[in-house]
Amino acid sequence: MSVINLESEALTTVVEESPWRIIWRRFKKHRLAVAGMITISAIALACLFAPWIAPYDPINEMARDANNQILKNAPPSLSHLMGTDNIGRDIFSRLLYAGRISLSVAFIVTFFEIIIGVFIGAFSGYYGGRIDDIIQRFVEFLITLPLLPLLLAFSALMRDLTLPGLPREWSSAVIITIILTIFGWMTAAILVRGMVLSLRNQDFTEAARAMGLSNGGIIMKHMIPNSLAPIIVTATLGLGGVIIYESALSFLGFGIQPPVPTWGNMLNEYQSEMWTQPAKVFFPGLMIFICVLAFNYIGDGLRDAMDPRLKH
């Protein structure tokens, strides 16, 4: 066997581990992150299979006691794990169904916010000059717009809009997703631009340019991967915010309306009774708390795992 063969064999064995496996290997070191991932997966699966898991119908079924009276505001018990609400619906079942909309809106909004923010931020920081000026002033402009009146105005304009081929609650979920994304990508853009500003003048960028890599290639291969760390931190911190904004929207009469449950509108619905039945408002808040906490752990772990400067 020739030396050349040996060398090529050696090379292939070195290359074998894919970047995703490296990330996964590093990610596993952060035990809280793994715990967070398991929690989120469990909650997401439970919500996804809500029709099979939830013991009661979330909208139409009223709990009844032995005398066939509707059981309103029941405390948590074995048959109703988290009690019932003021018209006798099972809170546990409602929470599971609510999670479907809340979680998907949160995931999708954050995902698109990050995508848009990263590209615009990297573009703005890398090219600099007039392009940077225009984009940054536009970002400032969007930041100075107040969210609440903005949502009010939008809610008035788009209240009765439904998308063809979708049930009503999902079509309003899509519209909310779009609105929250449009007004939420700026934080990511600012952060990435800041990172790229300092990256673009560093030696490795010069080297990449000298080797003939195009501007687009440099942005994709060097600028964005190197600025991912703070982005992931913001993204995970922002996930909870999306759930909260969704609840604010529901509160304003836009967004997903009761009786279709979301964690946000359940929180709003039960808030008025928190002095008399604190347990009711406790559970939706707890769900949001657990999910956001888990997201944050995952983000922490991902940040550690995806750091390009980490070589082992």
Partner: peptide, 18 residues
């Protein structure tokens, strides 16, 4: 880490009322 995340993981309204 858990301590640091504690406050920010809660909906502001809910946290305040709690």
């Amino acid at each position: 880490t858990t301590l640091a995340f504690f406050g920010s993981a809660m909906p502001v309204f809910w946290f305040g009322l709690m």
